[in-house]
């Protein structure tokens, strides 16, 4: 091996981390600017949430609660999940409630609802209801209270209306009816739902978390305490595809979407270039492109780093550095 190569790898070994930063930045920016089609493989944790929500289709005595425990910082990952779930519920005529626990999440809830409801004829208080911001200190009492009576525990919605008077509350009393809670957070906040809402009242709990926090929730997913999980941006992308392929699928045979099928989802590709899918419903998939390129970039870096390591180690006589 010539000296030049060795010198190059030597340099690579002690590369200034800012070079890595710039490569990562480029690997992320370009795919975001120029979307391209790449396959999205749907995994079980996401699929389970989809199937659970789908099973409530048109059932007026069932509802989904979306709990927001994050602020704007983690929006890129969590927001597409929230929008897709809302879109799914609106598409399938499923009652959906939202609640948030930090003040900074309140505008996010509105933003998510407004984004999703643009395409549907849905009304607050009838098809969905935003319970609004409830202080974190009240989280436990509300969580437990909803096991008995949602209207009593939550009292008012974000517009200050008494919940018990709303039409959406007909047939919805507690976790028996509001059977699924999806918690969106950049922390381990789903665990609280598991300990209180699930253990005490048997509510189904699912989590939507940022990729960094996925590993934290794995044990609960494996034991089934979490019935499903959105695993970061990838989970969001998967759900976007699921909604596209089933709930939003329109044809003569299926004017109101079609039922879930593992076989169909595996075979279907949804093009994200072009205008077939509105941008807001494919954000996560475009983001996944960036993530893919960045991952490949990283793997490449790691490999280069290791090759360099071996070469330089050879040079210093096989000593461990």
């Amino acid at each position: 091996m010539n000296k030049k190569t060795i010198k190059f790898f030597d340099k690579i070994q002690n590369i200034d981390r800012r070079y890595i930063y710039i490569v990562v930045a480029l690997a992320i920016i370009f795919p975001l600017l120029i979307p391209f089609n790449s396959p999205t493989y749907v995994t079980k944790p996401t699929e389970d949430i989809y199937k659970k929500i789908d099973s409530f289709s048109g059932d007026k005595s069932k509802a989904v609660l979306l709990s927001f425990t994050h602020d704007a910082s983690t929006m890129p990952e969590l927001f597409p999940m929230e929008v897709s779930v809302l879109r799914h519920c609106f598409e399938r005529d499923i009652k959906v409630f939202t609640i948030c626990w930090i003040p900074a999440a309140a505008p996010l809830v509105d933003y998510a609802i407004n984004t999703a409801k643009e395409d549907f004829d849905v009304q607050s208080g009838i098809d969905y209801c935003n319970f609004g911001y409830k202080p974190y200190a009240l989280r436990l009492p509300i969580m437990l209270g909803m096991g008995d009576d949602i209207a009593k525990a939550v009292e008012t919605d974000s517009q200050g209306r008494k919940i018990e008077n709303l039409e959406i509350m007909q047939d919805i009393k507690n976790y028996d009816d509001m059977n699924l809670v999806v918690d969106f957070a950049a922390s381990g906040s789903a665990i609280q739902w598991i300990t209180y809402a699930r253990a005490k009242f048997g509510a189904n709990i699912a989590a939507g978390v940022t990729a960094v926090m996925v590993a934290d929730n794995y044990p609960y997913l494996q034991t089934g305490q979490l019935m499903g999980m959105f695993r970061g941006l990838k989970g969001a992308a998967e759900y976007e595809k699921l909604v596209d392929v089933f709930a939003s699928y329109k044809s003569e045979d299926h004017p109101h979407g079609r039922p879930f099928s593992k076989e169909i989802i595996d075979q279907t590709r949804v093009a994200i270039t072009g205008d077939a899918v509105p941008y807001k419903y494919k954000k996560a998939r475009i983001g996944m492109n960036a993530q893919s390129v960045a991952h490949i970039m990283m793997i490449f870096f790691i490999l280069i780093g290791n090759i360099g390591y071996f070469i330089t180690r050879k040079k210093v006589g096989g000593k461990h550095v």
Binding site: R258, P259, F260, S261, K262, E263, I264
Partner: peptide, 12 residues
């Protein structure tokens, strides 16, 4: 008793 029947629409 319950049967699993192939459903052509959802291919399972």
């Amino acid at each position: 008793t319950q049967s699993l029947v192939f459903n052509d629409e959802i291919k399972s």
